[in-house]
Design a protein around this nucleic acid. Structure first.
Lengths: 197, 197
DNA sequence: TCCATACTTGGACAGTTGTAAAAATACAAA
DNA sequence: TTTGTATTTTTACAACTGTCCAAGTATGGA
């Protein structure tokens, strides 16, 4: 990350960054990520290449900015790095809604990119980190042996796993049902031993 | 994947593929993945570039081959795509041992590559898929509402999560302890509600 | 208004990627 | 050994990447 998006930038810089982000979002809706070149992005945003590298290290760095803006635009509480005060369920509901808002973007992303592509990984990774930061103080490991960081990690990936199932796997699931899944996966009775017949 | 590694190849082809895989493993121990160029791999393997592209689509395609060979070399039962007959715990123990065997490789990988790099993602993804294939018939979802594919997915990522904690996060954890983690994360009492004080 | 400083831009560069077409080589059957 | 086929290698190519520097352009303070 060349520029910290948390710091308020001057109007001109903000506009330039936005232009590249918009170019990226438009391109993502059209074609696979590995067919999106820095050249084409500059073409779309109507800025010279040197300006791109002025603000971003590479395509992925621009993606960081894009995902961050996505959260910012929906006034996501989980983005507040100051105080992590949300429960796991509250966090889950927030991200559920965020993904719901950007359903059409997600749809074109998975149409154009394989699920194990660097792009999808980058996306998933970003929001896993966001969730982790949001819930890390909410996990309670008093009665178990597993380290709390690992449990928090597990909770974040579980949340993402369910949202991937819904929005990347294109299954219609209401928030209520999704919350049932979450409860079952995190504290439900999953049998480790196969029933030998 | 240009060539199916499951199909027995002629000796010459096998040797050439091995040479590239060895070049890749050697390079991974030395430097970050994005500094490993196809040119350099060909240099190391002592084959022309066209030969590389003859066998592999790109660097990632070679990685597929590498990870597969890793499993093959340790006679991993989970690689048997024919019959998936392992319980979750058995599968976990097998992959635990595989990672233990290749500890030094994993160590240099995480020294040279960020945890969210395409390389680490590719590696993790490969073994998540291996585990998923191995356990998908072992999950029991009779008493819950969550779809069995999602549960199987959840079990695979949980296994990988623990192994990442141990081998990529460099925490010393015995197989016994690791199995405790697995039981707790998959069927333990994780509280979703934060204890309000 | 002028100037100094910081930022933006254009152009050039070496190195990389993936592809395509011929040329060379290996291999198997007759 | 010869012949036909399949594979490997050589060579060349167009396009992209990330970096650098020098020239151009804003911007704010004196």
């Amino acid at each position: 990350m060349k520029y910290d998006p948390n710091i308020k930038q001057s109007r001109g810089i903000e506009r330039t960054q936005r232009a590249f982000a918009t170019a990226m979002f438009d391109s993502l809706a059209e074609k696979p990520f590995d067919k999106i070149t820095v050249n084409a992005l500059c073409e779309k945003a109507d800025y010279p290449r040197a300006t791109f590298y002025n603000y971003f290290d590479d395509k992925f760095d621009l993606l960081n900015f894009c995902w961050f803006k996505l959260g910012q635009d929906t006034h996501l509480d989980v983005n507040n790095t100051q105080e992590n005060k949300l429960t796991i369920k509250e966090t889950f509901a927030q991200i559920y809604k965020l993904f719901e808002d950007y359903q059409s973007l997600l749809l074109s992303i998975i149409e154009n990119n394989p699920i194990d592509s660097p792009l999808v990984n980058h996306f998933v990774r970003h929001f896993t980190d966001v969730i982790y930061a949001s819930i890390k103080n909410s996990v309670d490991t008093k009665v178990i042996h597993t380290p709390s960081e690992l449990v928090a990690q597990h909770c974040s990936t579980t949340i993402i796993e369910i949202l991937k199932w819904i929005y990347l796997g294109q299954h219609k699931v209401t928030l209520d049902e999704a919350e049932t899944y979450l409860t079952e996966l995190l504290s439900g009775p999953i049998h480790l031993q196969k029933n030998k017949q």
